[in-house]
Design a protein around this nucleic acid. Structure first.
Lengths: 338, 338
DNA sequence: GCGTGCAGCTTAACCGGTCAAGTACACTCC
DNA sequence: GGAGTGTACTTGACCGGTTAAGCTGCACGC
């Protein structure tokens, strides 16, 4: 049972291939009656335009690429990516664009994948995450003239469309909230220090701590994994002068931190307050539920996809600010025990 | 800067397009010297074959489709899918197949996506999960003659390649272990009851409970989400005759169950033992770390991808058994307090 | 000296769409 | 009646590969 082509439709409708193409694409050049007849036949025989043929004749591939560059062991548990992906889908699906995924190990590999995809005309654009300082992917994207949207830059726009959110503002809100509760020793467990948004957060954290007279702002770098989150938390809690509150750069590390506190016999929030970043269902799942810096990750993804589709259509957009994460207080934060 | 085609290579090498095609695809018909020259030129100008043109001329699309049919809110946190996906990638990447993803809301939509993808020749095959009884997708796959691999069937092979693991054996092991620890009242919080593998597990759970004389085997159905996991756990724990151990059908619900127990002032594992299914890092993240039925999800995915590539190559494989999940005891299980 | 075989190419059709250019025919208007 | 203007098509080139079939020139056998 061969898959039907426009030629089959043309034969049955008694018109030419060209007429069928015009009819199905809503182009002028056919009468309403003929158009309806052709569309009816197309539906009846279950016609779908061969995407390869369509892509070949100058048009779009109607697909968008996304690479995941984190070790496999974290990918599964990190809710962030899936949130993003379902956001992409919401936007892409509506325009019947496909999402092509690739898991890579290094940024170098990622660049290779972009080059291959673009060379193969497999995709019309890519969504890029985890921007670093002097990111090697940016010049490649520019050189290839591959439409791209970067998620989570610093807000300083290059020539590539960026989507960013005011992480500095969010962390400032979290610190002010903790200080209002009475905390004076606030530490932070950060994500990978190379990432631009980690740097933005660290800078803002240092600034707000200084401006509130909190003394040294301690940030322990980690890598978003539970293991590193535990390790960093342990390091913070075994010191003599231990913090009464910790802010984590993602929810997975925050949950791990909570487990470490419990394992050390500390009560949360009595002895230690915990604030997570990126409020996935994970935060409400544990006991006590975690206070978190929430944002609509899926909406963030949808916005990125939307901007990418614009960029693909040739409408260059420079720099888009997404919603700032806001504090959602839950059971893991309280005034420190005196 | 137009992307190079074989015509460009042909011109530079002073041969015909056909010769270039033969040379680059390792086909006979060109001398070794010419082949080397052509390959060198291709590398030099950064040539990648246009996938659309290749797909159009009868060949493969070199892409595989995968649909995610769960509500968006669970997708993010459910480590299972990302584990699978990274497994797919490991296998597909090596053969430079792309993975095309689509999030859908219903099985009906899923069928539509399969039809569209296949009609568009966008993909060469699909990987299907969450098999149900009389699954409506199976006849469609057969009718379309779309190569497919089904993950998590019951083991009863239809005409489509299936990958399954012995979930019955795994749950039997878990129950025997709990009984060996001294538990007599063991309950279970299951996944969606329609799913075939849920039914397999439920049947095996009932059987082993009966054969060990444990009385009524109570299974509370849920839907893999944390909320439902909490609700089901609460229902089990507020009853007069509450279980001393609960087995959960995934790790997210198990973590939620743990939080409920803690919130109700029950000690885990003192008052309640917990066993999770699918041992993601989440299980080791919480306190106490959860005893789990572990399996190599990513390996499972890789195996599925491998079988699909076989099916695409025309080698029909009927039914493949993957590794059985095995019990990994951790801190959440202990003899019940008497 | 000539047929035969074969490696090493070239040629051209083909995949299934898109789209600019061409055509046929009706309809209007002076 | 003939020019002018649409409308509703048809025709055919083209996208960039693959591949069957055809063509060359050389080596070899007899």
């Amino acid at each position: 049972m061969k898959r039907p082509t426009i030629a089959d439709i043309a034969r049955r409708a008694g018109v030419s291939k060209g007429a069928v193409s015009y009819a199905l694409n809503g182009q002028p050049g056919v009468s309403d009656a003929t158009r309806k007849r052709i569309i009816a036949i197309a539906q009846e025989i279950g016609f779908n335009a061969n995407s390869a043929a369509r892509a070949l004749s100058g048009a779009r591939a109607r697909a968008v690429g996304f690479t995941l560059c984190r070790p496999a062991r974290i990918l599964g548990i990190e809710p962030w990516f899936m949130g993003l992906i379902s956001g992409f889908e919401a936007e892409l699906g509506a325009r019947s664009y496909a999402l092509t995924l690739q898991v890579v190990a290094t940024p170098e590999q990622e660049v290779e994948v972009y080059k291959r995809w673009w060379g193969e005309r497999r995709i019309d654009g890519v969504i890029v995450t985890d921007l670093r300082e002097n990111d090697l992917r940016i010049p490649v994207l520019q050189q290839l003239q591959l439409p791209a949207v970067v998620i989570g830059g610093s807000g300083e726009s290059g020539t590539v469309t960026q989507i960013w959110s005011d992480d500095g503002g969010a962390i400032t809100e979290a610190v002010r909230y903790l200080v209002a509760l009475g905390h004076q020793k606030i530490a932070r467990v950060s994500g990978v220090p190379d990432l631009l948004h980690t740097q933005v957060r660290t800078r803002a954290f240092n600034d707000v701590c200084a401006s509130l007279g909190l003394g040294d702002a301690i940030t322990v770098p980690a890598d978003y994994t539970g293991e590193e989150g535990s390790r960093a938390t342990r390091r913070l809690l075994i010191g003599g002068d231990r913090p009464t509150a910790i802010i984590y750069d993602n929810d997975v590390m925050a949950v791990a931190g909570l487990a470490v506190a419990q394992e050390m016999g500390l009560s949360v929030p009595g002895d230690l307050s915990i604030v997570a970043w990126d409020d996935s269902p994970l935060c409400s799942l544990v006991h006590p539920p975690l206070t978190a810096l929430s944002r609509d990750v899926s909406g963030y993804g949808a916005q990125a996809a939307r901007e990418l589709l614009h960029a693909i259509d040739g409408r260059k957009v420079g720099n888009v600010k997404a919603q700032t994460a806001h504090l959602t207080p839950r059971g893991s934060t309280a005034p420190p025990r005196t």
